[in-house]
Nucleic acid binder design. Structure first.
Lengths: 176, 176
DNA sequence: TTGACATATGCAAACAGTTGCATATAATTT
DNA sequence: AAATTATATGCAACTGTTTGCATATGTCAA
């Protein structure tokens, strides 16, 4: 049930609406936890009923009202307890690598095109992450503790995408 | 429905029983697709009903009988069609990075211990993959096409684990 | 001889995630 | 005036995954 904890992890930093959460899960948070807005809204209701979050409707002008969620003391304690439990490295499910595993039954062009496209996609993510790094995490010394931890997840995002780009290059080289 | 395709991708190389498949999904194939034996057996029945696989019961002595699954022509065509469709980079769900994102609410010791444990786990995987590399993929030139593709997935496994170990080191360094 | 381990297969319930649909306001573009 | 985009929220059906349980044979060690 780690979507719950991913939401708590974002809200412990600052309150957010479901819409804002969905945008974050589509952006930098999405690097380590993917979730759709439908999933997020459903989970938020559940977490509010459980008492880990409290919601407050904020009337807005010029746009629909929104519901801001705050983490409760119980929610924070739950998050702390969850963090303290050891966890396993993440399970991987990667379509591209399944394709590559059986790549010899397809035409080389199809495989090479797919590799090129993935290379491009990873390069774009990498560029976004590097922009974030330059904008928000210029010098380590001045960062707050919370910022340091956020930066660590960004660093993983950067090395993850860098590694993918390098592997695509190598794969293309080997197959050509 | 990519578990189906991951199974087809293994069986297109050579026939296997559910038990053997489960072991492979727990080993090197597990690097790019994680699946439990329950999932695998259920999926195998489904794929046989669909006509993508055919199963043959092999009587054995000194151990329970097993059922060997072969990919059918229809199954191979399905796999080829699936490979030809473009796919997105894999969605990530990583418990450890969720923990790190909110790591500032936990005690430093808990975080550092968890980082050390993950570093160790990734190092062990890396060692297994490097052993496989030395044993089966010594020189690129002599590899068959199928082996080259299999090697590419192993290469990704190696760089993935290497990247994790490096990140753990960096994270521990920054937090200390 | 009891217990653990390896081989070998599978069901069923609970939980999580995806996909398609639905609604509503307001600004901007065509 | 109509279409599109951004904001904002959510339900329902389906599909996929996890967890716990269940069964059966044979070997090896305590």
């Amino acid at each position: 049930m780690a979507l719950a904890h991913a939401i708590l992890a974002v809200l412990v930093d600052c309150p957010n609406s479901g819409y804002d959460l969905a945008k974050q899960f589509d952006g930098s948070v999405g690097f380590f936890w993917a979730a759709s807005h439908q999933q997020i809204y459903r989970e938020l209701s559940k977490l509010e009923k459980q008492g880990w979050l409290s919601g407050e409707i904020i009337p807005q002008e010029g746009r629909p009202d929104k519901k801001l969620y705050y983490i409760t003391e119980a929610g924070k304690q739950e998050l702390q307890a969850w963090i303290a439990q050891p966890c396993e490295p993440a399970a991987i499910k990667d379509d591209l690598l399944v394709k590559i595993f059986a790549g010899y039954i397809a035409s080389p062009k199809i495989i090479l095109d797919e590799l090129q496209q993935h290379r491009q996609a990873h390069l774009e993510k990498l560029s976004i992450y590097k922009t974030l790094e330059q904008r928000y995490f210029q010098n380590l010394q001045t960062l707050s503790l919370a910022e340091k931890f956020h930066y660590l997840t960004l660093l993983k995002g950067i090395s993850y995408e860098t590694d993918w780009v390098a592997w695509c290059d190598r794969a293309i080289e080997i197959l050509r």
